[in-house]
Simulated scan of single mutants.
Amino acid sequence: MYESHTYETILGRMLNRIPDDLDKREGSVIFDALAPAAAELAGAYIELDRTLRLGFAGTSSGEFLDRKAAEQGLVRRQATKAIRGGSFNVPVAVGERFYKEGLYYAAKTSGTSATLECESPGAVGNAPGGTLQPVNHIEGLTAAVLGPVLVPGTDTESDSALYVRYREKVTRPATSGNAAQYKQWALEVPGVGDAKVFSLWNGPLTVKVVLLGPDQRAPSAQVVADAAAYIESQRPIGAVVTVVAAEEIPVHMTVDVTLSGGTQAQAKAGIEQEAGAYLKSLAFKDPIVRYVRLANVVLEAPGVQDYTGFLLNGGSANLTIPDGAVAVLGTVTVT
């Protein structure tokens, strides 16, 4: 809020309009009469400032950002449910329900290898697999295992993510089957977190769309198939479109550390967490994995006082990730 709109400045201006031969001191009749009005005006200016900020996409939030995005035909993505694989020793029917650690999964296909859908929307459905318990009795069932994530569940789109899409739509209009439109089509598919489009990659009228999942890693084969089918239904006539998952390039780290406190396991966990976050920030944005940046991750890890012999994929230089690939954390060896 502007300084001239604070309670103190508003009240001061009011009192300056009163002749000096009248008592304007705090506690006087005039002061007490003007103070509530000044407080109300200051509150009104706060709301006006907030309204002004909500009117611009870069400073808006919540339902007001939704309204701004709607002007560009964008709708906030709602939470989606995870699709998982399931293995059973006897065939299960469509609709059978199972639970694991408070989450319920319903069979969408039948058989001993069934597809399961988490009943709770959001990334919570991507929890590690394990033993499932049936909700109802199933004759002969002795083994039920929650398998891999086929289509990851996603949380409701955040304000920051919606704003990124808003800016993308405004600055790079999607039209007539251009690269921006292929990216827009890809991002409309559940389980796709980002996409990179290569025009004329294999000759005239060829388009290649490389996909990332919401976790900035290669998406599952099911997500790639869904994206390919959806883009095929939208693309211009004559285009030959190839949709693939991004190639994952593992980044292995080896380092000897001197500890000032904590344990080796804690230091390793801290390195893995920060290094993983750094690599995710590079996905489809920066092809260089910087040796010095990851060395700093090691040095700033909990309990690490110093380090020697830091190697990145066996060397001490930056790594260059090919276009359309993504760097992912490999093994981290801390001694």
Rank of each mutant, 00 (worst) to 15 (best):
Q266F: 00
P152M: 03
L141F: 05
A327I: 06
N318A: 10
G102R: 10
G177R: 07
L329T: 05
P134R: 04
Q184P: 01
V197G: 01
V189I: 07
F198T: 02
Y182V: 00
L146E: 07
L279V: 03
P128A: 15
P236E: 06
S176D: 04
E139Y: 09
H252K: 07
A143E: 09
A42H: 08
V223T: 13
L212V: 06
I83V: 13
T112P: 03
Y307A: 09
P214N: 09
E8H: 10
P148W: 07
G203L: 13
D49K: 14
E3T: 15
P287H: 00
G262P: 08
V90F: 06
G276W: 12
A57T: 03
A35V: 00
L211K: 12
K280R: 11
P322I: 04
A114Y: 11
V243F: 11
R172T: 13
G62Y: 14
V207A: 11
N89W: 08
L205C: 14
V189Y: 04
V244Q: 13
G314N: 13
P214H: 10
W185R: 04
N89Q: 06
R165Y: 09
G262V: 01
T333I: 04
S28Y: 13
S61C: 07
I271H: 05
S316D: 08
P204S: 07
R17F: 05
P236S: 08
Y163T: 02
T171E: 15
P148C: 06
V92F: 10
A239S: 11
V240L: 13
L187V: 01
L205N: 14
S28F: 14
G213M: 03
S233K: 06
R25L: 09
Y230A: 05
E247I: 13
T80Y: 03
Y182C: 00
A179Y: 08
L200C: 12
A229G: 14
P152W: 04
E139G: 11
A107K: 10
L146V: 03
E188P: 06
D155F: 03
Y230I: 00
P250W: 10
R235T: 00
G262T: 04
T258R: 03
R50G: 12
L311P: 11
Y307N: 01
R77S: 04
E8G: 08
G303N: 02
V257H: 01
L319S: 12
V241E: 06
V209F: 14
Q72K: 15
L103F: 12
A180Q: 03
